[in-house]
Simulated assay, not measured.
Amino acid sequence: MPGQRADARRNYAQILAVAEQEVALHGAEASLEQIARVAGVGSATVRRHFPSRRELLEAVFRGRIEDLAERARELAASHDARSALLEWLDALTDYATTARGLAAALALDEATPEHVHACSTQLVGAVDPLLLEAVRAGEVRADVTTADLVALVTGIALATEHHADPAGQARRLLALAVVGISPER
C-alpha cells in the first residue's frame, strides 16, 4: 500500500473496516456487493483491492491470526509441552467460535489445497514447534499434524456455531477430542 494514492489507501481502509463488520454479522459468506455499498465504493473497487474472497478474509482475520501465532511462539518456551499445546488449542477454539467466518475461511483452505491460505500457513508455522515438542515428550500421538489440529478446531467451531453456547460447547468437544490425540496409556 505505500505506493498507492491517498484515495486508494482510504478506500482500502474503508472496505476492510466494513468487511470486518459484515463478516462479524454474516460470516465468511458476507456479500461483497453489500460491503461495497456500505463502504461507498463500487464492486470493482472492492475486487481491485481484494481480487478474491479468500484475500478479503485473510485481511479481515490477519491481526488475530498474528496474535495466535505469537502466542504459540511464546508458549513454545514452556516446560510443559502438553499444557502449552492445549492452551494454544483453547485460544484457537475460543477465537474460532467467536469470530464468525474464521472457521469457514480455514475450512475453505482445506477444501482447496492448491491455494495456500496465509492464515493457515501462519498458524501451522507457529504451532509446529509446540506440537513437535508435545510429540517428543510423549504427550501427543506421533501421527498428529498441526493441520489435523487446525482442521479439528475448525470442525468443532463449524459444528457449534448455532449452539446456544458455541464457545462452551466447543470447549467441551475439544476436551473430548484431546483424548483422541493423546497416546494410549
Rank of each mutant, 00 (worst) to 15 (best):
A84V: 06
T45N: 03
A118C: 09
Y12D: 00
D128K: 14
L106E: 09
A167H: 12
Y12T: 02
L123E: 03
A36Q: 07
I156H: 01
G168E: 03
A151H: 14
G3L: 10
I35Y: 01
A19N: 13
D143M: 13
S120W: 11
E161L: 10
R71H: 01
D148G: 12
Q169R: 15
A151M: 12
R141H: 11
T97H: 09
L92Q: 00
Q21K: 03
S182N: 06
A107M: 11
T97L: 03
S43L: 13
A137P: 12
A118N: 11
S31D: 01
A105H: 12
V127P: 02
P183V: 11
V38E: 04
H163D: 10
H26Y: 08
C119H: 11
A76S: 15
D165G: 09
P51Y: 03
A175T: 14
L102W: 01
I15F: 02
D109P: 10
G168H: 05
R100C: 08
A157S: 08
E33I: 00
L57G: 04
A105S: 15
L92D: 06
A19R: 02
E66Q: 15
A8S: 15
R10K: 09
D148H: 15
R172P: 12
A118L: 13
L176S: 13
V135I: 14
S31T: 00
Q21M: 08
A96K: 05
I15K: 04
S43W: 13
A59K: 06
S182W: 06
R54Q: 13
V179L: 15
A157R: 07
T93A: 03
V153G: 07
A36G: 06
V135M: 12
L16G: 04
V127T: 11
A170F: 13
A107R: 10
D148A: 13
S31F: 05
L173W: 03
V135H: 08
A104L: 12
Q169V: 15
H163R: 01
A105E: 09
R5A: 08
S52T: 15
L130R: 08
G27C: 06
W88K: 05
R48N: 14
A17C: 05
S43C: 11
I65S: 01
E22Y: 00
A167E: 12
A6L: 10
T112G: 02
H79L: 14
M1N: 08
A13P: 07
T160G: 03
V178W: 06
T146S: 03
V178D: 00
H117C: 09
L152P: 00
I156V: 04
D143P: 05
D94N: 12
E114N: 02
R136N: 10
G125W: 14
D143F: 10
L86P: 07
R172F: 15
I181W: 04
V60P: 02
E114P: 07
R62G: 14
A30W: 01
R185L: 14
A126P: 05
L174F: 07
V179M: 15
G3W: 06
L108S: 11
G180D: 07
A8D: 12
N11C: 05
V144H: 04
V153E: 05
W88Y: 03
A17G: 03
R53I: 03
A76Q: 10
Y95P: 00
E66V: 13
E29K: 14
R100W: 00
R54Y: 09
E184L: 14
E66G: 13
R136A: 08
A6G: 04
T146D: 10
A126F: 04
G63S: 14
G40S: 07
D67P: 06
R141T: 11
L32C: 10
H163W: 08
R9I: 09
L173F: 01
